[in-house]
Design a protein around this nucleic acid. Structure first.
Lengths: 350, 350
DNA sequence: ATGAAAGCGCTAACAC
DNA sequence: GTGTTAGCGCTTTCAT
């Protein structure tokens, strides 16, 4: 068995409560006693049993992190940030993988809830009701999604979308498609809304909504053919993986990005800069988001006042690389052929 | 406060030990009592407090997983497998990110050790001594690395290397380079050894050792120029990320894979099949490895006899895609020019 | 400033 | 088969 507070007490000749105090609340113990105890504890290799402490304090010094898919580097980055900040705050992190399955997700959260002081939840698919119910069990901070009444940390999806659009318009694109992610994804909806809003503010542009698509390579492949058929010269993909699928399908059809079609996307996953063409994409400070989640959760758990406003939107940044370029000449001509008066705003395709 | 075993006892009119037994060891309780208690517990929303249970049983029903970098999808996959298997065995998973830093790693393991029944450790860099010391604190299962006296799960690196080599030789390559990963990486050393062994068994081949390199994109970029200079027509990269770097640098220099040079690698990370050319690479069943780690760790923790032999090497599989092709004609001629008698075995380059 | 004692929620002997 | 009791390691009143 490991060395306990009792052993230290016996070794130093003081009572167990004094040992406890010397270690947990040193200011309550006289200098010489404190030093004696602290040194003995160190020499004996004493390590407090957190379970025992938790039993009485009611706090576990653990937090939970539940993500849809650990294999997805997006969530790995968030996990890194969470782990990092939690560790320096003296908290351990439980991990849960919900496998993109709302039912399993609820189960995972519930099973973890009792053992932690709070949960950071990345839930793209679960319903608001389920999540609110979960939040009844334990403090919850949402990632990348907002629900009325719950704390959450988000990226500024709309700003990212606008940055992409401005970039593409500056390159001379006038017909631009957005290949949406899953319909039930909160961030995809935010981007779609921003896309429409952009179109309304710029009626000279022809905007085409494509999708929804699964947020993976194959989703991009599917989107590619529709994008080509739509006459768009640039496509904004929901995420980098879809962008890769788009580019691949383009190549299969003898086209090249960015020469024949510009592709931009969201996420800036590591491989974005390792492929050809390197992707123009919106960078999210994911590790930083993980840290922010822990800060917010601990505010909640410890009843601290919030320094930051509720549900802030973390700033994002467009990284311009090689997958976007000037609009093809033919398109420019085609665009020129269309009288400005007859140009329409957002056009929707199922 | 949450509902406790006491509340259930009060509600049903039985003693707390009967409640405890009805829930933990149902076969020790009479049918009617058991049903009564179980139903009441369910209705009242009773959930056992694992910390309290752990305090007395000495087991936490938690395991730890410490990886060098959560952002690396390789470890994400392992984490997924670990989490999955642990969950179905009733165990929760603590996560630790060591940030590729051996010092931090030891600290993370130590801080986690007290709260778990055992640790799964992915340590590429730590010294044997440190790890053995850590293993004194808590049961440890090593991933992707072997140390005498410790349990570990590995992939069959040598078989993977041989599969690649046979594939390249069949394509007509006679001068083949290996771009090694970090010198202190266990798996990289295994692959280097296998590379040399292959060369000794096939003296007609010219084998070139390059590196070591950091196991990332830039490492591949660095390797590319050396590979070209070496006269090799095919390069085996330590991992997929390096392969991407190789391909990128080749392109910068006006060359193409596989036409001018074949590139093969290890890992089969998800993006391997999303880039152009899609990578020929050795697939590791990582999720399955994560599961195997949990099985082995629980054998250790529960004192179960081992079904599998110690330190088995998980089978790997070569996935042939587009980054490898027949040796360029010029190289074939060059190769033919060299009399078989003067062909040499492995050639080492610093 | 320090010690004694009472638990936190649960399991494991030990009685009946 | 079920109840009683004694802790697991720790914090926290309450005395002193």
């Amino acid at each position: 068995m490991a060395v306990t507070i009792r052993d230290v007490a016996k070794a130093t000749g003081v009572s167990i409560s004094t040992v406890s105090r010397a270690l947990a609340t040193p200011e309550q113990v006289a200098e010489p006693t404190r030093l004696l105890v602290q040194q003995a504890a160190r020499e004996m290799g004493y390590r407090p049993n957190r379970a025992a402490r938790g039993l009485i304090t009611g706090r576990t010094a653990c937090i939970g992190l539940v993500v849809p898919d650990l294999e997805n580097p997006f969530f790995g980055s968030i996990g890194k940030g969470v782990q990092d900040r939690a560790r320096s705050a003296g908290y351990a992190v439980f991990i849960g993988d919900s496998g993109e399955d709302p039912t399993l997700e609820a189960e995972v959260v519930r099973s973890i809830a009792k053992q932690v002081d709070g949960v950071i939840l990345c839930s793209a698919r679960g319903t608001d009701e389920t999540i609110l119910e979960l939040a009844g069990d334990t403090p919850v901070v949402l990632v990348n999604r907002s629900i009325e009444g719950l704390e959450s940390i988000n990226f500024d999806n709309a700003a990212g979308l606008r940055a992409i659009m401005q970039h593409l318009v500056a390159l001379g694109h006038t017909t631009i498609a957005y290949a949406a992610g899953p319909a039930n994804s909160w961030s995809s909806r935010r981007r779609t809304e921003a896309f429409r809003a952009f179109g309304e503010a710029a009626p000279a542009l022809t905007l085409v909504e494509l999708g929804d698509f699964p947020p993976v390579f194959d989703g991009g492949v599917r989107a590619a053919d529709l994008a080509i058929a739509s006459g768009a010269t640039a496509v904004v993909a929901y995420n980098d993986l879809m962008a890769l699928g788009l580019i691949d399908r383009l190549r299969q059809r003898g086209m090249r990005a960015p020469d024949d079609m510009s592709i931009a996307s969201f996420d800036n996953v590591a491989v974005s800069a390792m492929v050809w063409p390197k992707l123009t994409t919106v960078d999210f400070p994911r590790v930083q988001m993980g840290r922010a989640c822990v800060d917010t959760l601990l505010d909640l758990v410890l009843g601290r006042p919030h320094a930051a406003p509720r549900t802030p939107e973390l700033p994002v940044e467009l990284v311009v690389r090689q997958s976007t370029g000037v609009a093809p000449a033919s398109a420019a001509i085609r665009g020129a052929d269309i009288p400005a008066a007859t140009s329409m705003g957002a056009v929707t395709t199922p």
